[in-house]
């Protein structure tokens, strides 16, 4: 009893009868192929389900779907439907077709098939109900396959979009993570602009540590003027970064801690004792020069150009 093995409860003669009826249905749908298919296309057009498809596409697609469904009915196998559903979902979703369009189309086809069966068997209620018993599970299964393929495709697109978003955000973070700038030998400046969450603090520290090693820096001036919402969490990130730099033998000077932030941090008990803080960036650079044994002298006392010179110590 080829392909309809799931109806095992049926006795042998009854199974043979069911098989015969199934073949009859297949033959019927093949005979009526042109009529039924055209009727289906007309109904879909009336319901507005064909938006975005050219007449030629409608023609080929409808033929394929129609024949695939009859094929499933005949063989009891759904590989063809599965493959087609996947392809259709990929294209459909890509073109922005809605589930209503795709599922609505199939529901319409189910309707067309059903009505034609009703039309053919309506004088013999027993045969009609036997025919529907064969036809309906197949139609439902095809619908389920297509719906599932469509959902899977949707999920894939959503997932890809989410990944793209994450990539974009990381790009943005990378851009915001201003690279450490070498001002002069042994001195790096790191102006931090934007929100400092734990992920960014981590990237920033990793990056700064490598920069210290690459530039053999001894002093880092870290300016946090551009960091909003400096709370205990942010402060702890900073303390960690400073500690890590110190393990490489570099001293960090933090600048740009606004007075109210300084007060808040003291009030909530953040230990900034290990951090050298100077109020503004210029002061921070001066302090760094002092630590490095540089002395800044003006070559033209009236002009803006300054030159760094090594103090006698180095």
């Amino acid at each position: 009893m080829k392909g309809r093995g799931n109806l095992v409860a049926v006795s042998a003669p009854a199974a043979a009868a069911t098989d015969d009826l199934m073949r009859e249905l297949v033959a019927h749908f093949r005979e009526q192929r042109d009529t039924l298919r055209r009727e289906w296309v007309e109904q879909m057009k009336a319901k507005g389900l064909l938006a975005g498809l050219t007449p030629a596409e409608t023609e080929t697609e409808s033929v394929t779907i129609y024949d695939t469904c009859v094929g499933c009915l005949e063989t009891g196998k759904y590989d063809g439907a599965q493959a087609y559903a996947t392809r259709m979902a990929e294209r459909g979703v890509l073109r922005g077709m809605t589930p209503e369009q795709i599922l609505g189309g199939l529901l319409t086809l189910r309707d067309v098939y059903g009505r034609s069966l009703f039309h053919r068997y309506h004088r013999d209620i027993a045969r009609l109900s036997a025919a529907l018993d064969i036809y309906e599970p197949v139609a439902n299964k095809i619908l389920a396959i297509v719906a599932l393929a469509f959902i899977e495709e949707r999920e894939k697109v959503v997932r890809e979009e989410r990944e793209k978003l994450v990539r974009q955000q990381q790009e943005a973070i990378r851009e915001l993570s201003t690279p450490a700038l070498r001002v002069r030998e042994r001195l790096l400046i790191l102006p931090i602009i934007g929100v400092l969450d734990s992920h960014r603090a981590r990237l920033l520290t990793e990056h700064l540590l490598r920069a210290i090693r690459a530039n053999r820096a001894k002093v880092v001036v870290m300016d946090i003027t551009g960091v909003p919402n400096v709370d205990s969490k942010v402060a702890n990130h900073l303390v960690q970064t400073v500690d890590a730099c110190r393990l490489l033998g570099a001293t960090v000077i933090v600048t740009g801690v606004a007075p109210e932030i300084a007060q808040t941090l003291t009030a909530i008990g953040v230990d900034l004792g290990r951090i050298i803080t100077v109020c503004d960036l210029q002061g921070g650079i001066d302090e760094a020069d002092r630590l490095l044994g540089y002395r800044v002298i003006a070559t033209d006392p009236g002009g803006p150009s300054f030159q760094a010179a090594r103090a006698q110590e180095g």
Partner: peptide
């Protein structure tokens, strides 16, 4: 101390306290 090692140490909550550190032997 390598940058990655320094990073892991601070993540772990480890400090060398008052021990002096430098980039390399020369430093």
């Amino acid at each position: 101390i390598q940058p990655d090692v320094a990073f892991a140490m601070t993540q772990l909550g480890l400090q060398l306290g008052s021990v002096a550190t430098a980039l390399d032997l020369e430093e």
